[in-house]
Nucleic acid binder design. Structure first.
Lengths: 141, 141
DNA sequence: TGGGTTGGTTCCTTCAAGGTAACTATCTCC
DNA sequence: GGAGATAGTTACCTTGAAGGAACCAACCCA
């Protein structure tokens, strides 16, 4: 049994940075964090970021890399990422015009924290699934 | 100007962990990462996690800490976090019964990666807002 | 007797995210 | 002449997330 470490100094610093950028109170709509998190928290953005993190992809490559995304959502999500300055789009006037998407420097700077969270999710997925089972069972009892 | 670091070894390791837990192809519904990210990517979960990260809160305290959450969403989001094993609920049979919510150890283990991403968001918010302006302007032209 | 506090629940409604399918346009291959 | 690949766009529809407001139940105080 560990003592309640709770919050490390580093973590506290990060939190204060966040809370400050939020105005002390987490006040919503004009909250910078939410403004950004709302975008990357959607269904496809983080998946596309991961795919593009490994190497630049063409439109069709992305569609194959993320098989269950619809063409519409792929276009739209790429546009959003592009608008946010996380992804850049390069058209090559080849015989059948081809388009390449790649991370911008800012997009790359997002990968470490993003992957950190995803790695946590991957590592704790089993534990969370078990917790959900336990919770459901306990609720039924 | 930094050289295009692109992907550090550490980051690559994290990505491979994620991709592996995803089956090579990012195949969707049974993807562990998405299963978890879908929950913490909703409108209120991360905000409540941040609030609870600083200290345990009572129901009413949380409502005041996150002023624009509806009572309904607060209840529901807390239930979801509880089901996932990230938050625990303790009822004190005081005169008017009071309820305290606090992070579980797993919840606490999520704070560093979560705060990492939020800190990134806070740090790059201005840059993203500018990128959106530039994009809109360029689209209009 | 009736208002206040605590921690909810229920019903109703709206809005945006997302999916499906069809259409475009150009070039190549069979 | 049609099929297939390139990279999309557009219209339409469904669903689920979220908001608002009212209600509940126990207990306190005055």
């Amino acid at each position: 049994m560990k003592e309640p470490t709770h919050i490390t100094p580093d973590l506290l610093a990060a939190m204060q940075g966040v809370m400050q950028s939020v105005g002390g109170k987490v006040d919503s709509s004009k909250c910078p964090v939410r403004d950004v998190m709302d975008h990357i928290g959607d269904k496809w953005s983080s998946l596309l970021m991961v795919a593009l993190g490994s190497k630049p992809h063409r439109f069709g490559e992305l569609k194959r890399a993320v098989p269950d995304i619809s063409q519409r959502m792929l276009t739209q999500t790429l546009r959003d990422l592009q608008a946010d300055g996380l992804v850049s789009r390069h058209v090559f006037p080849t015989v059948p015009p081809s388009v390449e998407y790649r991370l911008t420097p800012m997009g790359e700077s997002m990968m470490p924290p993003l992957m950190g969270l995803m790695a946590w999710a991957a590592a704790h997925h089993a534990q969370i699934k078990q917790a959900r089972l336990d919770f459901a069972e306990q609720a039924a009892a």
